[in-house]
């Protein structure tokens, strides 16, 4: 792999700084089944944390609980040390603006061009004037290499391009942290690289990210920490070097072995 020492985090927070994001004891049941059982995690500034685990482990639900797309039954959420009162809808919207989200199936707005997909929230949520929003959106599209596709609609873009527009859309809001829910799982294999490239760039630039993925090579190379989830709990966590060391008898290593075996 490209990275020389994957265990070294990009940027370490100053000791006094609160974590960018903290989820504490998140519990959620759906349809009478406990999906998340007291899951907690902390993200320091600039940290890239990767969540892995078998399907049905609750990884996606955990991500969706963090910005309350799936409201947790209990648990507490903190952004830069300030607790979110999720029953205050104004506070929740403020919170969500600062917590970007990337979805597995992109979820671009089908009726808007790439440019408008990026600028609509700037205009309608942040209240920026149209011209300013457009300039900002163009900058973000440039960052993901899609300047020439600005006028196209989602139906006219490839999967990889759609996901890159989704990144531009999330980044335009200047999020403090980005949640990525299997950002490459719905892509054709030859398109995965371009999206991983965007994530790699963000990681290098110090973006704080929490990412669910099955791209183990990628996680190994870039993650500061890997969290392994199963049946609604965090089973183990640690740096890729610890969990994936040759001969390490961890669930993570076992799971990765299976993925490798399947050629994933």
């Amino acid at each position: 792999m490209s990275s020389s020492n994957p265990a070294t985090p990009a940027i370490r927070p100053a000791a006094a700084e609160p974590p960018v994001l903290e989820a504490r004891n998140i519990c959620v049941s759906l349809g009478g089944r406990l999906i998340l059982d007291e899951v907690s995690t902390t993200l320091a500034r600039g940290e890239l944390k990767v969540v892995i685990g078998p399907s049905g482990a609750g990884k996606s639900t955990f991500l969706q609980c963090i910005n309350c797309l799936t409201p947790p039954d209990s648990g507490r959420l903190f952004l830069e040390g300030r607790e979110l009162n999720r029953h205050d809808s104004f506070a929740l919207r403020r919170f969500r603006q600062q917590v970007g989200m990337i979805f597995q199936d992109f979820n671009l707005f089908d009726h808007l061009t790439a440019l408008d997909n990026v600028s609509v929230a700037l205009r309608k949520v942040r209240g920026l004037p149209a011209k300013e929003a457009k300039e900002r959106a163009m900058q973000e599209l440039e960052r993901v290499g899609l300047t020439l596709r600005a006028k196209l609609y989602p139906a006219e873009l490839s999967g990889g391009q759609k996901q890159r527009v989704a990144f531009a859309r999330a980044l335009a809001m200047d999020p403090k942290v980005l949640l990525l829910d299997e950002p490459t799982s719905a892509l054709d294999p030859e398109l995965v690289g371009e999206v991983l490239e965007v994530i790699r760039h963000l990681a290098k630039g110090g973006m704080t990210m929490l990412m669910v993925t099955h791209q183990m090579d990628f996680a190994r190379a870039l993650a500061n920490e890997i969290v392994f989830m199963d049946v609604g709990k965090i089973v183990e966590s640690g740096s890729p070097a610890e969990l994936l060391a040759p001969g390490a008898c961890t669930r993570t290593a076992d799971f990765c072995g299976k993925l490798d075996h399947m050629g994933l």
């Binding site: 797309l69 969500r96 989200m101 979805f103 199936d105 979820n107 089908d110 989704a166």
Partner: peptide, 13 residues
């Protein structure tokens, strides 16, 4: 699509 509604919510709409 429900996903677009979630995306809009996630952006703070």
């Amino acid at each position: 699509r429900q996903g677009q509604i979630r995306a809009a919510q996630a952006l703070g709409f």
